[in-house]
Design a protein around this nucleic acid. Structure first.
Length: 477
RNA sequence: GGUCCCAUCGUCUAGUGGUCUAGGAUAUCGGCCUCUCACGCCGAAGACACGGGUUCGAGUCCCGUUGGGACUGCCA
């Protein structure tokens, strides 16, 4: 039972489908989603596809896919701006009729020339308003410009930056309708946010300079502007705006590298937002604690190492079953189709594996020896540990396994220690050859746990195969 | 160039005038643990950009300087 009289909070995320969802966009989406969820409001998804040249359906799908992966579900939409052209057209006509906008016949070429000339003379590259008072009508190549005020100032109280104000004379008359009849970003975004009842616009602070222009548009359209909150940008390691040249910047790229969405979400949330010294947040905690007042003002550099560590923590903490489906594609990349009867074995191995595997890709790598009939033998490891001298040790261990089995790890460890002592060698001198015999490499979880999971028969078979190799080391190299 | 925004360890950040000889995380280094590799634990090093104010007192408030970023499109 809701008893608040205040209008329900509505936020939106409006990506333009001209590329994949990148880290900055994902964080913006996350903050909007968290804010809506925290306040029990609605989260609207809208595709800003008015740039017909660059907008692509495949990007729409990729963005939706990424949002889905992150679990950022929307309550409304996705709306598409290309389906609302009539509405924008109507708004523009209304503005022209009221004298708040006018037709402009200046060509892009002469505009560009004027801009460059102004720059060269140290002036401001703004539209000079040549057509502002001409009272022109539509025509070939003509656009509609907003008729902004020439005096006064426009101000707002930004929810993260505080008070910001702009001299109106600093703003030129922006184009709101292109010569092809399509609306520009400024017009479409304002009309949409009005129509969709958006109460809070949370977006990257690369939009602050757009805000006063849009407020003017709200006023001309006789609508109340929403609350604005400009969150700091996410920068690359070189502190410039994140872009393709910064390597992996798309969210799905991280998914494909084996990161868990909860780790991605947690890391993104901590860029520009904090809750005391807490570092790990569940999805519910994020919703519970998130608010705009704890969002910082300065730009943040995305730290891959920290994401990796975060992912490692989530990997370790995950229930083995949670990892089963997500790891499948990474196994498949290694040519392994996980069979149903192998699942219990993998599930049992996962707790031993995850402290060593920061990503799903690593997990697949480390799980491989358990899932193949015989492990892929690393030649270097074989050369070093499967020596004629170790053949004897391997044979003794076989006897041990035949005798004790593999499920009593404590008894097996004791037996290994006794064996080492009897031969006056260190435990490692026994364990390493065995390890290489069992998994084909020099690093693995504890050797007794590996044996337990592999099971007696497989252990015996692998020890036998390794002993053969050890007797004839030439074959390995 | 102009406008606007920003400024605490390498990086993410805590800090809202005194409890800061500045806390946490990550990265780095050292140690412990140990059958390998990890995990984990312990420890070290590492920051309030600079200069003026205001104040009994400033990382915290104000001004300036410097540095960085964004915008300056018929792109969003």
């Amino acid at each position: 039972m809701s008893q608040d009289n205040t209008p329900k909070i509505r936020t939106r995320f409006p990506p333009s489908p001209t590329g994949a969802l990148h880290l900055g966009g994902a964080r913006t989406a996350l903050f909007n989603w968290l804010f809506a969820r925290h306040h029990n409001g609605s989260f609207v998804l809208r595709l800003e596809d008015t740039d017909r040249e660059r907008s692509k359906q495949e990007y729409v799908e990729s963005i939706l896919d990424a949002m889905d992966w992150l679990g950022l579900d929307h309550d409304e939409g996705p709306y598409y701006q290309t389906q609302r052209f009539d509405r924008y057209r109507e708004a523009v006509e209304g503005l022209v009729a009221k004298g708040r906008a006018y037709w402009c016949h200046c060509s892009p070429e002469e505009l560009k020339q004027k801009r460059e000339q102004a720059m060269a003379q140290g002036g401001k590259p703004m539209y000079d308003g040549s057509c502002r008072e001409k009272g022109l009508g539509p025509g070939p190549g003509a656009v509609v410009r907003f008729k902004g005020p020439r005096t006064g100032s426009t101000a707002w109280h930004d929810q993260v930056k505080g008070p910001i104000s702009w001299e109106n004379e600093e703003m030129d008359d922006l184009v709101i309708l292109r010569s092809d009849g399509s609306p520009t970003y400024h017009l479409a975004v304002v009309v949409d946010d009005i129509d969709m009842g958006i109460t809070h616009v949370i977006r990257g602070d690369d939009h602050v300079a757009n805000t006063p222009r849009q407020i003017l548009l709200y006023q001309a359209l006789e609508a109340k502007p929403p609350v604005f909150a400009h969150i700091p940008m996410i920068l690359g390691p070189d502190k410039t705006k994140l872009s393709k040249r910064h390597g992996a910047t798309s969210v799905v790229a991280y998914r494909d590298m084996g990161y868990l969405p909860e780790a991605m979400l947690n890391t993104l949330a901590r860029l520009g937002w904090s809750h005391g010294d807490q570092e790990i947040f569940s999805r519910d905690e994020l919703i519970q604690f998130f608010d705009l007042d704890a969002v910082g003002k300065s730009a943040a550099v995305f730290d891959q190492d920290k994401l990796l560590k975060m992912n490692a923590r989530y990997m370790q903490a995950a229930e083995p079953k949670r990892l089963l489906e997500p790891v499948r594609p990474f196994l498949a990349q290694r040519g392994i189709q996980l069979k149903p009867e192998q699942e219990p074995l993998l599930l049992k191995a996962i707790p031993e594996l995850t402290p060593r595997t920061p990503t799903l890709a690593d997990l697949a790598d480390w799980a491989e020896p358990y899932l193949l009939e015989q492990p892929v033998m690393d030649p270097k490891a074989a050369r070093k540990f499967l020596t004629p001298a170790s053949a004897l040790v391997l044979a003794r261990v076989r006897d041990l396994v035949a005798e004790i089995g593999v499920n009593d790890t404590q008894a097996m460890e004791q037996a290994f220690r006794d064996l080492a002592e009897q031969n006056s060698i260190k435990l490692g001198a026994v364990a390493q050859p065995v390890r290489v015999a069992l998994v084909g490499r020099t690093a693995s979880p504890g050797i007794f746990e590996v044996m337990d999971i592999l099971g007696r028969d497989r252990v015996l078979a692998r020890l036998a195969a390794a002993a053969d190799l050890a007797k004839n080391p030439a074959e390995t190299s």
